[in-house]
């Protein structure tokens, strides 16, 4: 066979999300070790997408960790779409792990409403320890916005995301930080610093087109790979997240 001509511009190893449409948009997957933001207003599918990313990783033999901040993970599990490809055994075998952030706070004695810089360090170290100990390759924190509320200042948020990003990356862990914004938001994160520091941003939203509401997804940035910047329409199905490009139809205003 003739040698394959490789026209890709990046040689960084990929963390294949397993969501076909997204992997295509990302030219193969998220560059391994990246810390990315999955951002959008409520109900746009952030949790569903992030969870599917972990399930595929676990099916592939990687240890995957979901840190739930807003919702008790037990409740979360009862709400997820019954995927055709989900295997209960992933949880039993410890390939798919759920941790509730409030439990972590409690163990660390972080019970104040606002964390100090030292406490940020304690938190980062605690997460890093779990990742190291269990050799976690994929991590989701849902949501980072809730953690940021405890940090309050831009300075501490920057410190937290920079440190956690660097630590996870050095451990070879690819991480998704879920970020919540209000629909009218002009930016991709509530505090503004998250989006500047993250290695990538996947933006999920709703688009109204002549009375129809479509779920959309767009890769806004992704360090270490070329990627599509097209807006996609998505569907959350038992076969996972499916994507098709948004039709433009020559239309302009209102999509």
């Amino acid at each position: 066979m003739a040698p394959k001509v490789d026209l890709s511009t990046s040689t960084r190893e990929r963390c294949v999300t397993g969501i076909q449409g997204l992997d295509n948009a990302l030219d193969g997957g998220i560059p391994r070790g990246n810390t990315i933001l999955v951002t959008g207003s409520c109900g746009t599918g952030k949790t569903t997408l992030s969870l599917e990313f972990l399930v595929h990783g676990a099916l592939d033999g990687e240890t995957c960790l979901f840190i739930s901040v807003t919702e008790a993970s037990s409740k979360l599990l009862t709400n997820i779409i019954p995927y055709d490809f989900f295997e209960e055994s992933l949880i039993k075998k410890g390939k798919l792990i759920f941790v509730d952030m409030p439990v972590v706070y409690e163990r660390l004695g972080l019970n104040k409403l606002e964390f100090s810089l030292e406490e940020v360090d304690v938190l980062v170290r605690a997460v890093a320890d779990i990742v190291k100990e269990m050799d976690v390759k994929r991590l989701v924190i849902d949501s980072i916005t809730s953690v940021c509320y405890r940090l309050r200042t831009q300075e501490k948020i920057r410190d937290f995301i920079l440190k956690i990003g660097a630590t996870l990356s050095s451990l070879g862990c690819t991480s998704v930080l879920v970020s919540e914004i209000s629909p009218a938001e002009e930016r991709y994160s509530l505090f503004g610093v998250e989006e500047a520091i993250a290695d990538g941003i996947i933006f999920m939203g709703n688009l109204e087109r002549r009375g129809d509401l479509l779920r959309t997804l767009q890769v806004v940035k992704m360090r270490g790979t070329q990627h599509s910047r097209t807006k996609y329409v998505l569907d959350l199905t038992s076969a996972g997240v499916l994507l098709v490009p948004l039709l433009k139809g020559g239309s302009v205003a209102g999509g």
Binding site: D212, V233, L234, D235, A239, L243, V244
Partner: peptide
């Protein structure tokens, strides 16, 4: 699919059925 104007969703449902 809610309406024949939701052409993307139409495609997504076809894709889903093919997968299933």
């Amino acid at each position: 699919v809610e309406s024949p104007t939701m052409l993307e969703n139409l495609m997504l449902k076809v894709e889903y059925l093919i997968k299933r």
